[in-house]
Nucleic acid binder design. Structure first.
Lengths: 248, 248
DNA sequence: TCGATACTAGAACCACGTTCGATAATCTGG
DNA sequence: CCAGATTATCGAACGTGGTTCTAGTATCGA
């Protein structure tokens, strides 16, 4: 009983002897692979070969692919948190919350493989939890109930998550390979839409020009600002509003 | 040249001879598998064996696993659209939009494997596109620019998508196997949070009681209502508001 | 010097998506 | 009624990927 390896993948902790590899090296290489070609590109074998080692070594540092992904996410989230510091304080809690959400969104634009994974992990200590705290802290200065605060943070993060879901999916290989122009790829939507019966699809025809050549960031900002407008209203901070209204 | 099979997986269309199988049967079985154990449970082999056939037969009806998933999603989306009809018309566009979003959310609660996939497919005709149209159509009655309408629908769908992302991830096997009580699983968050330093994590301590035993639906509704409040404001329909404010 | 621990390494196992060619059932036209 | 084409079935086989296991090497404490 009690096989030799009890808990691998836990803490190689102390900087040990010849650090030919280390958890940092593993995570760094993993992030490289992810940045280069997205989530499917991160394979244990590929990672091992990039590190010039065997698959078994990788498993010494992480417990599996899922764990690896979680740690990679946590890794880059550290950078996002550092970015938060660099922003000037405006004094208005909602403005600061907005700035944070935009920073997070931009990180997701750069690394679509973050997908919506950056929300897993609030059950354990880590940068994901820290991020949640930083966002929520802004709301402490608002006149809200704890439940309202809790819902507000979730809502704001939700806007980022859904934008991330949008960004993280598409590139259908042909675009990646450069066989199809990105312009043409996006225009496909519009082409299909315009061919539809206007009587059956009045809305689609109404917005088709907006959809064509749509801007992901503007889309995100619009959704974010709708949520924040609702939040300001709830906190009694809307320009000219007074009575907070309960939603649910 | 011109190998025998030009376009399989396109339309077995016409109800053919001995319909020992059919695209409907395939989709039905696929949805069963998905309902039973989520997305990972849908394997080509598993599906084939449930249908009492070989893997090759499955590939006659669908071009691959991805296509299968897309069609399964489209399949259940048809049911959601039918559900829309059953709702009484309130007359208020925003209320109707809200009711639709809730209906969609409830479908996702029932079938977390819908994940955020139900947004892929608006580039081709199908129920996904139809759904988008139905949601947007409500907004035509609002005093908004096409761009604002476009952003509003995206925002509302985003709320559902992010809720779906939340719902679609968790069950870490132990809960599925019944080894861990669901209650205890959810309580883990709260336990961890309470153990944190209140000085470092003031927000988390502020909301920990709300998080403990949190209600997914209430959370979704709160986010939805924040967005809709912002939308009402934008459309000049806010209770007591008058001047629409541009966000971006 | 001797074990124990920390770490490396890759062969082997298994599940999966997908391809392919062989085969049967059905339809079409003569 | 009979060829040939079309439609559909089937499972062996290939490649890839996650994970496990066992054998081995380096480094440390005593």
């Amino acid at each position: 009983m009690t096989p030799p390896r009890q808990r691998p993948a836990d803490r190689p902790s102390r900087e040990r002897r010849r650090a030919s590899h280390s958890i940092e090296a593993v995570l760094g290489a993993a992030v490289e692979l992810l940045d280069e070609a997205g989530e499917p590109a991160l394979t244990i074998r590929g990672l091992a070969s990039r590190l010039g080692t065997g698959v078994g070594s990788v498993y010494w540092y992480v417990s599996g692919r899922d764990d690896l992904l979680d740690r990679a996410v946590d890794h880059v989230l550290g950078g996002v948190l550092a970015e938060f510091e660099r922003h000037p304080r405006t004094g208005d809690p909602v403005d600061e919350l907005r700035a944070m959400a935009v920073t997070l969104f931009e990180a997701v634009v750069d690394r679509p493989w973050l997908g919506s994974r950056f929300m897993r992990g609030i059950d354990a200590e880590g940068n994901s939890l820290r991020l949640y705290e930083e966002l929520g802290r802004q709301l402490l200065r608002l006149d809200l109930t704890p439940l309202q605060r809790f819902h507000a943070v979730t809502a704001v993060l939700g806007v980022v998550v859904s934008a991330a879901a949008d960004l993280g999916q598409e590139p259908p290989q042909a675009v990646v390979d450069g066989l199809v122009e990105r312009e043409e790829y996006l225009g496909r939507y519009a082409t299909v839409w315009r061919a539809l019966d206007p009587g059956e699809y009045p809305f689609l025809h109404d917005v088709v020009d907006e959809f064509d050549g749509h801007d992901d960031k503007a889309q995100f900002l619009a959704a974010l600002d709708l949520t924040l407008a609702g939040l300001r209203l709830q906190a009694g901070r809307a320009p000219g509003a007074d009575a907070p209204a309960e939603g649910s």
